[in-house]
Design a protein around this nucleic acid. Sequence first.
DNA 1: TATTGTTATACTCTATAACTATA
DNA 2: TATAGTTATAGAGTATAACAATA
Lengths: 163, 163
Amino acid sequence: MTQLRTHNPDAARPRKPATAAPIDASFLETLLGYNARRAALAVIEVFLERMAPYGLRPVDFSVMSLVTHNPGITSRQLCTALGILPPNLVGMINALEGRGLIERKPHPHDGRALGIHLTAAGRKLMQEAEQTAAALEGDVGNRLSPAELKTLIRLLKKVYKPG
Amino acid sequence: MTQLRTHNPDAARPRKPATAAPIDASFLETLLGYNARRAALAVIEVFLERMAPYGLRPVDFSVMSLVTHNPGITSRQLCTALGILPPNLVGMINALEGRGLIERKPHPHDGRALGIHLTAAGRKLMQEAEQTAAALEGDVGNRLSPAELKTLIRLLKKVYKPG
DNA sequence: TATTGTTATACTCTATAACTATA
DNA sequence: TATAGTTATAGAGTATAACAATA
């Protein structure tokens, strides 16, 4: 069974609202890495809450989404696409298969590999889960306009995508 | 002694350049969280390389930078500002103090707390390290224009900063 | 009674080495 | 010889509970 991360967002916060500590973090806030990590953690925090009903952590969702849009994808391809190491994927796949969300079938062209497919239950789950994920984007739009969100994603891609 | 993360960037990549796997990740790439995490990891990867000569992981650099710009800051304040849990900060502080980069002095107004200050060695190290960190921003500018970088950071702040 | 700093500890995440079956 | 999938295991990151000293 997949163990969902507890991720208590208050855990790293003051045990009691502190007495106004005007800490100067201005230098750190000029750094792209610092801001990108902070933003990623903030979004992932909301993601964790919204996906908890589906029993999907971000990485599980990513795997399921790739299987959804690439039926028959192999473990090897999942690892490459998501930057996961093969030994660390095994448990996730086993858990998802154990939940009846995916199934492994022999690969048509390669006897070593196994193609991963969604089950009917997996398809049903992902229809809702992807809708929830898309809706989450709109909710961040409480802080960002649709145009800003589009710009932000475009610039983030420029940072991490080769070429 | 602070143990630097190995973080072998090739570890999660194909053991041999794969035979062109045209995986469709288009849905994931519409998600802010996915893109933000990918971008953060890409920048942090470069950060790790550049900061290795100083023996500073991202979190060590963040702590040192806050101490630099907030002399006498307490552990408690560092934890709040960086989202670190107190038990997890202790080892970092001890390691930095053991390297002679910081020192703890009694807090003027609170007998429970200890104010953290840079040593001369710490000041010297951070002068170079912050310069290196700033230069790293310019190098990402190989992919982003200065204006785009500025926009990107502004939008990232809107995502994670309250208000 | 509450907070700072700390120890001990557990759980998750990420990484390496090595094995098997197949190519 | 090389690759896909797997097992075992080690290390780093993150979490909770509980304690002493001070407020």
